[in-house]
Design a protein around this nucleic acid. Sequence first.
RNA 1: CGGGGCGUAGCGCAGCCUGGUAGCGCACCUGCCUUGGGCGCAGGUGGUCGCCGGUUCAAAUCCGGCCGCCCCGACCA
Length: 575
Amino acid sequence: MRWSQAFIPTLREAPADAESASHILLLRAGYVRQLSAGVYSYLLLGQRSLLKIIAIVREEMDRIGQEFYLPALHPAELWQASGRWTGMGDNLFRLKDRFQRDLCLGMTHEENMAAIAAGELRSYKQLPQIWYQIQTKFRDEPRPRGGLLRVRQFIMKDAYSFDLDEAGLDASYQKHHDAYCRIFDRCGLRYLTVEAHSGQMGGSQSQEFMAVSPAGEDWIASCRGCGYAANLEKAESTPPPPAEAEQDAAPEAFATPGQRTIDEVSRFTGLPAAKLIKSLLYMAPAARAGGEAEWQPRLLLVRGDDEVNETKLLTLWPEARPAHPAEIEQYTGAPAGSVGPVKLRHPAVKLYADRALIGRRGLVAGANREGFHLRGLTPGRDFQPEWVEVRQVRGGDACRHCGQPLEVQPAIEIGHIFKLGRKYSQSLNVRVLDEHGKEAVPIMGSYGIGMERILTAAIEQNHDAQGFWLPPAIAPFQAVVSIVNTGEAAMLQAGERIYAELRRLGIDALLDDRNERPGVKFKDADLIGIPWRITVGKKIASGEVELGKRSRPGAETVPADQAAADLARRLHADG
RNA sequence: CGGGGCGUAGCGCAGCCUGGUAGCGCACCUGCCUUGGGCGCAGGUGGUCGCCGGUUCAAAUCCGGCCGCCCCGACCA
């Protein structure tokens, strides 16, 4: 394509409302324009890049499954069948048709796919099935952000597997895992596969594909020693032991007037936060014989310098909430800040403690009396908690599997694979006859990749002050041919020749034939994400041009008539 | 939804406190000039000052309401 004919609206300055590198650069490079919060138009470059990403995803998915195309517009009944019409809450875009019938825009397609399966699958002989689509998804995000990172409309590859039994599901899951690795490898991303929290989707196993980036919204813990990696929502570790040996001592109350937070008590007592116990009262629903839920007070103890991970907590105690101030007084006898595990006012309070407190001695906690704390506390001797795992893993914690220190870093979720179970096949009535002629409910898996997130992550991982460079496989053009001065016949002709040769070799090239000053062309070329550049300048007098890789400074001089073939070889060799 | 910020030309911003002529840089158009890192000179085009209402002789500016966008948090397969 000729730049003089192309619509590539580059911006010299960053738009005021863009913050992250990818957001700024997508706008500056003319890839996208924003229509409203979390809704973007993809222009020439953005669309070309996404089409290349989609092509890779399609190729790899076709190796393991079959492509469908399902509606984005769904009747409410479909979502009511699975319970997600109400369960999904405000994240689901809802609308009404002219007859006031309820509809929604699909955010995923488990129901839709299961409905097709329910209507058509009859026999175990038809299994396994892997069905996928590449479709626009809609989510009414409470806060869209970061350019294309979290949006309300985006393109997703979503796949669904149907198997007769767990072993079949394991195989389908593994196929997706392998396909995803091939996809992200081909897209040139630096990523990790991590154990993930299954969330409301339920299911037995799930993994996320995470592109490491400071712009990421998720945090992952990973171990260089053994390869263990997990989302912080699920990660486990062994915290470093306390610095000094701890002594047994008898519990003893002491006054701590006005000292409420861990920080305050730590400063007041001169003890490190690790010697304190943080005591948090939660209310959690416990099933009762009558079916009615009973709200139970539960005191959760964690190390003073630890944080509770909300996701872990809610996995342990679904629907639990922090107790209100009145409840805290009622059950413990003290306001928040003086609460502890010993001498609780109300016998109904159940005690739980994070495993990081196992084996600790001589600790300090609230005395359940306003303005007083207890020292000399030893878990297991002075109180008997049930041990749980709720603390947030921190960088430097020891790996559970090999003891090496864990690294904690932010990452962008680019893919997620799930063993779903039978929730959707059950509720949408998917039934097949097994080999014994008995009715069986197939077991499902669900697997997603966010197309825009691949582009976003690639930019976040490959940029500098001047712009960015995409891996050639997903760049809108693999190379740009910059003609320094189109007014010079020799340069113009050489540029045209190289451009034609590149096209003949099957290389997507952009010919910068604009009547602009060299500085403008170079700045633009550096900005817009094209990985290779051939510069046709004054060296053409001796039959030479320059070949430069955007990710590296500098360029080398090559014979003009070799330049295209040279580039083709390099693209083939190392991208 | 809570906290913070912003809304003035296509983009980036000043002007608002202290009411009275809407301004700067870039971009864009014309001409000349220039061609290895966003040239130079000259002349131009372009703005319902987010919207509605109020105060006032007079509102970008003061007051009230609303809308939109961004950031932090909450939320989030």
